[in-house]
């Protein structure tokens, strides 16, 4: 087994070259290159984390913007609806007022017409009475030969008409 057989003669050489090579590797690679590689990795991780955070922030901002827009939109809609309701109420009120006005005109004309009808009827009734009184006086003078004066005849006609 050369490991044991050659131990005493090669140990110093093994130790020397191992320490030399390992020492150089430790300082050049371990101390020099490894930290740089790990820095690169750390930098990259940090950049990715930053980018993710920025994306998250942008998304949050967008969400907030959307929320604000929604609130504004709702307010606008509510105010528009209020405006529409107001206009509707105003239109209804004016319609009602016009209707009332027209109704009042119609009522007045109707009342006038009724009054005219009533006077016409009264006039007609008066004429009928006068005609009836003349006829009654004529009938009485012809049958009984009695001359009834105009007023008595009129009174009798009125009495008969009241009895219907």
């Amino acid at each position: 087994m050369p490991q044991i057989a050659q131990m005493s003669e090669t140990f110093a050489s093994q130790l020397f070259w191992l320490l030399l090579v390992f020492g150089i590797l430790f300082f050049v690679i371990g101390k020099g290159m490894v930290p740089k590689v790990m820095d690169t990795v750390g930098l990259r991780d940090k950049q990715i984390a930053d980018d993710l955070a920025a994306a998250q922030a942008a998304r949050d901002a967008a969400d907030a913007e959307e929320e604000a827009w929604r609130a504004r939109e709702n307010a606008n809609r509510a105010s528009a609806q209020a405006l529409v309701g107001e206009a509707k109420a105003k239109a209804q009120a004016s319609t009602e007022a016009r209707l009332a006005e027209v109704q009042a005109g119609i009522d007045a004309r109707m009342a006038q017409a009724e009054a005219r009808i009533a006077t016409a009827r009264d006039a007609a009734a008066g004429e009928i009475e006068a005609v009836a009184a003349d006829a009654a006086k004529d009938i009485v003078s012809r049958f009984a030969g009695v001359n009834v004066d105009q007023n008595a005849a009129l009174g009798a006609v009125k009495k008969a008409m009241a009895h219907g």
Binding site: E9, T10, A12, S13, Q14, F16, W17, L18, V21, F22
Partner: peptide, 12 residues
């Protein structure tokens, strides 16, 4: 101590 450059040192 002998510190000859050996095949072992070469492979290191």
């Amino acid at each position: 101590y002998n510190i000859a450059f050996t095949n072992s040192a070469l492979w290191m």
